[in-house]
Nucleic acid binder design. Structure first.
Lengths: 181, 181
DNA sequence: GTCTATATACAGATAGAC
DNA sequence: GTCTATCTGTATATAGAC
């Protein structure tokens, strides 16, 4: 329950930023230590191995998802619209954590892949009562996946082919027309 | 125009298989040489660097996409249905090439990301006349992205959350109902 | 708790024999 | 055209001083 040491969080922030900005290959322990302003030895005090560092990031992601699912179920605009809108990169802590985890997953981490899969299941479970049928749920989930996928390819930096503004509104309206309960 | 040496193709096949099955980290030149049944020196005769090896894979992908776009435009079932159906992993050469390129992209290769982006553009351009409007095109493209994204996470091995069989038919019908011209 | 210094392993790439 | 042997850089991880 006691909040984790400040240095620990700074290390995770740096690791996350490196994964997002430069990919899994550049997110070494050395670079992470540099980015966090600690030495390699200092980092290894908090995270004894690369795996422990990755687990730390994934644990933090899990907590953020708890909040997101709760927010989705009580969103005034409806769960489907909330889900799709939050699937486009807003660069908030949750988006960054998911993006970083995606990089880990495609960089080779098996546990990152499992965590992402389980997050998808939790979203699907929460959206299920708000969609007409299985095909409608599939549609909503796949559009959400597509939005995240494109963000992940971009690295969240360059404006990609992801619809924004009015185009995003139109897309959401289209999906809701067929899918929503 | 002369077909490339057999050993060259065998090396690309092995590299592709490694990327798909074990991810970019495991797809080293050493492992690729082993998988292709040649020595490291033999591999380096055909591909002088890791970058050349990756370019070889991406070039082969480009050729497969040429054929796919042509097939999409003349598909009897219509371009939208063809596109969505071919977005679920069939483990054919094109699917494997795209999956391998996705692994490269998320592993850190900038050129793989560019190639994938340009492939997406070509598909969107071909689908444009077959969709009602911009939002409908976005919808179709994003569902396709979502299907590929889930395949990429799975590694194409374990049966993932991607709809198949009757569920896929229902999804396609749903998308066509809103999106098709 | 945080540091420096170092051990170990393996990646990509070169040189040159066959 | 394919091989073995080797160089160089760099990543993870350990040991131990402060």
């Amino acid at each position: 329950m006691s909040r984790p040491p400040l240095a620990r969080e700074k290390v995770l922030d740096a690791f996350e930023a490196l994964l997002i900005a430069e990919g899994p290959r550049a997110a070494t322990m050395d670079a992470t230590a540099r980015g966090a302003g600690v030495s390699k030895g200092g980092l290894l005090y908090h995270f004894a191995s690369k795996e422990a560092l990755e687990d730390g990031l994934l644990d933090r992601l899990g907590i953020l998802v708890d909040d997101d699912v709760a927010a989705m179920e009580s969103a005034p605009e409806g769960a489907v619209a909330y889900f799709l809108r939050s699937s486009v990169m807003a660069n908030d802590p949750l988006d960054r954590a998911i993006l970083a985890a995606s990089r880990l997953a495609q960089g080779g981490s098996a546990s990152a892949g499992e965590v992402l899969r389980s997050i998808r299941d939790r979203w699907a479970h929460a959206l299920s009562p708000h969609t007409k049928n299985a095909a409608a749920l599939d549609l909503v989930m796949l559009v959400g996946d597509g939005l995240y996928f494109n963000n992940a390819l971009d690295g969240g930096s360059i404006p990609g082919p992801v619809p924004q503004g009015a185009a995003l509104d139109a897309l959401i309206a289209l999906v809701e027309a067929v899918a929503r309960t």
